[in-house]
Structures are given as C-alpha cells and as structure tokens.
Design a protein around this nucleic acid. Structure first.
Lengths: 253, 253
DNA sequence: CGGCATGTTGATGCTGATCAAGTTCTGTGG
DNA sequence: CCACAGAACTTGATCAGCATCAACATGCCG
C-alpha cells in the first residue's frame, strides 16, 4: 500500500512550494522541512486510506501528485465526500493539531505524498510547528470551500452543482500551474463525482452529458476542457476564492 | 438596530463563560476581556445583520442571548444557512483574523451580544489576540459542524436531516445548560429551518409533522421537546461531537 | 380588532433516485 | 498482439421525494 522511497523524479516539489509561496510567506521551519523531507516521498495506491476518522495521530503530509478525498460513510453505505485534496494540498496538516481527523481521507488516484512532519524521535505533539501565514491562508481557503460545498448541496440543482465544482477544481489546479487554457486533469469516476455532489451516479452521468451537449465542457481520457468559462460561471454563480491572496491582516503573535 | 448599553441584567455572561471554561483553559487575556466587556453588551433585533460577507473588519463578539445564522443568498433569492450561532458562541471570532467573513451573519431572534474585541484606540489587527485552547476547541467544533451539515444536505433525507439538526441543537444548548430533560428553546420559523436544511418551507412543515406524529418530538410555543432520544438518534445516525472535550494535544507556541 | 407573519393543507409536476440492461474502455495475462 | 475480465460509462423505464402553487387557518402584535 505504502511504498517508501519513490524515485526523486516523482518527488516533484513544485506544486507544494509553488502553492505555499503564492499563498504567503513561509517560515524557515517549513522551508527546511520541505527541503529535508521532499525527497522522502511515498506512493499511495487508489483506494488506500491516508487517515481514518477518529484516529488521533495525524502525520502531516503534502500531496505531490494525485487526488484524494475527505469522506464519511453512513451505516447503509451512502457515502459523502466533503472535499477534494489536490496536489500541493496538505493532508492532516492542521493549525489545530490533535484534532481528531473527523473524516477519513482516501486516495482517489495513484498518489505521491511527502511526509512533512514528525522528525525522527519526535512525538505527535511536536507535529505542531509554526507553518506561517501561508498555512493560515490555506486553512481559510479550506473552510471557504466547505461553505461552497454546503451551498452547492443545499440550494443548487445538479446542473449548477456540477458546473460549480468543475470551476472550483479548475481554479485550484490553475493556481498550482496545472491547467492550460481551461484544460486540466480529471481523474475521477462518475461514481466518485456523484458522492461529491450528493447525486446518484446515473444522474451525474446525465448531468455531465448535458454540460457537454451544451458545449460548456469537453471531457475525455481523464481530462476536462472548459469551453465557455463565462457561461459556466454564470450558471454556477461561481465566485472565485479571490481571497486566495496573502492574509491582509497577518496575525502577530 | 444596535442599541448600546443594555442593562446589566441582560448581560448574562453565564453561557459564554460556562461554554468556554468547559471547552478548555482560558487565557487571562480572554478572561480579562470577558470581565471588562461583559457589562457592555448591545441588543440586536431579528433580521439585523451582524456582519456582511466580504466585509474585512470583524469586530469579535460573543452571543449572550438569542440565535443567529451564517448565510449566503443566491442571485435569484435562494438562501442557504451554513450554521446556527447560539448563546455562548463567538461571532467574527476567528483564529484566522482578517479572514473576510465569507458569510453574512443575521440575527434570527432578538439578541444580546457582547463586544469582546477591540479596545478603544486599537485597529483591526489587534483584534487578533490569544484566545487560548478553549477557542481552539471551539473552532474545531465549528468545522465539525460544517462537515455534519454537508453530510446532512448531501446524503440524508428530509426526515433524517431534520432529526439530525434537532439533535445538534440539543447537544449545543445542553452543553451551556439551556436544555432540561430534552426540552429547549426553538425560536426559528419553518421558513428559516427550511433554509438550514436545504428544503422548501412546505416540505419542512410536513417533515416536522411526521416527527411529531411518530412521537419523536413535541413542538409548541417556541420550545421543542425530544420525546425519544434513542430513536431520534438512530434515525439521524447522530454522533455527538464527543470531541467537545479539551484539546488532548494543545499547541505549544 | 385588524393586519401580517407563520403555520397548515391539498393538488400537481419536476428533479433526481432506482432498477436493469447494455456498451465501451482499460488493464492484464496468454 | 489479442482475448478477456472488470471497471467505468451509457441508456431507457419507472418511481418517489420533494418543489411549487394556491388557498386557507392560526397566531401574534400593535
């Protein structure tokens, strides 16, 4: 499941560093960790669990490659995905360490993740280090996306919801330089997409067909292309997380 | 709209202090503020806006009395409430100060709120003070409730959803000593409830009727009584935010 | 006592779920 | 390179949950 010591080629630090530096100044502590741990990445296969909910110890990691999902499953099997975790995102990286995970994190695709936290000989508590303003901003974006998810599920139609999610993923991938002219990787099955959007798989399929038919997106071979950004944004009533900038009021401690 | 200097009798600090102390140790800074600002509370009338989304400056406050809601409204008038704010909760009290509010906060009932933040002559940045572990825990509970809300909206039926929300409110009010034997205040209209649950007002009405008819709850005159906690919990698949305890791994800075 | 918010009820229809059967794609081993 | 099996996707038919519309009842407050 976890294969240690992926090749250095896999350990592409670009998304993490790029994302973090764009979000705000990094502390030297985090920089040091990135350099020190960057090469020590591990592979994770699809379906593997990175964290179980209620598991107290959270080894902080960063995603170098691949997608994951935070989810919970009801007794009768209904699954809800709370949010997607994309390259450059932290997993189990909390400003409130020791927070029981609350959610299970599952790999949706093959991944390469970087262990960013516990130096040899350190305990769980020590995983709490100062991440700097970049991490503050990242946490804020996280919460903002949870709010978007609530709005989608509570008050948007399947059509609007799907458009909205596509735009969110585009914005996030574009931010780390992984989208070109509205085109980007889209490695998730319609089954998984349904569990994000709170829909059935069948209806998800039909909704995607409608988006294609109306020439809003093109979708094939694990990639998606946004064909009409303006119209898509209008349908979804999408507001970019413009707050993706550095913290205007950094917290002095 | 905002009437300063409510009588001292209104400025009932019990919920705030009780809640915070139960959540974890308070810093002397926060304690001082509670004592200093406690008597200086203000009234807010239903429908009044405590914060507009995107408004940069967030005056931190605590709710002494009354309920509020974090919400957003779509262009065509659809409204979604993200979460309820109850007595003892902070409003605009962020561990990540300067965070654009992201959401509008509206009073649902008459309220008494306590200004907890900016001392005369201080700027917005200074509203960032050390709230202590209690606030860390409170923030964690907040996020946990957002996740619950996503699960409700995404994968639960109207019936399950409603049961789940009632249990959440009960747990929160019970925690601050405002529930007696499963009975507690329930001051929100079915219209408002619909906007929390992502339902129409009519269907919300019918769902409540079903809960009453099946002897799960009794509802009248602005109060609700849970009649069968075990069955209600089973229906909602409710898991108490047991994490309502102090942080097991406090963050040392 | 009148007016407005809130709650209730019935009728109808649409959105999206479910069931069931294909079809296409992908990766794997022969 | 082909054959195959499983996953992913597609399609049609039917059904249920919830929305919508419209009217009416009730409660609350000035």
């Amino acid at each position: 499941m976890h294969v240690p010591h992926a090749t250095t080629r896999d350990a592409d630090l670009a998304p993490v560093v790029r994302r973090m530096e764009a979000l705000g100044p990094l502390t030297s502590d985090l920089k040091r960790r990135l350099i020190e741990f960057g090469p020590r990445s591990e592979r994770v296969t699809p379906g593997a669990v990175l964290y179980y909910e209620r598991e107290p110890q959270m080894r902080p990691r960063f995603i170098l490659t691949g997608w994951a999902a935070r989810q919970r499953i009801l007794a009768d099997g209904r699954r809800q995905i709370f949010s997607l975790l994309l390259p450059g995102d932290g997993v189990g990286v909390s400003l409130r360490p020791g927070a029981a995970a609350e959610t299970t994190v599952v790999a949706l695709t093959p991944m390469v993740v970087m262990d960013a936290g516990v130096l040899p000989g350190q305990g769980a508590q020590d995983a709490c280090f100062d991440y700097g303003d970049a991490m503050q901003t990242a946490a804020r974006l996280d919460e903002s996306r949870l709010l978007d998810q609530i709005l989608r599920l509570g008050r948007q139609t399947a059509y609007e919801r799907t458009a909205h999610l596509i735009l969110e993923v585009h914005e996030r991938l574009d931010f780390i330089g992984r989208a070109q002219a509205g085109q980007f990787e889209w490695p998730i099955s319609q089954d998984t997409l349904a569990d994000i959007l709170g829909l059935s798989a069948v209806h998800t399929n039909r909704t995607l067909q409608r988006l294609r038919q109306e020439r809003l997106v093109a979708l094939r071979a694990g990639r998606i292309q946004i064909l009409d950004m303006a119209r898509l944004s209008a349908i979804a009533e999408y507001r970019p997380a413009g707050s993706a900038t550095a913290d205007p009021y950094p917290c002095r401690r």
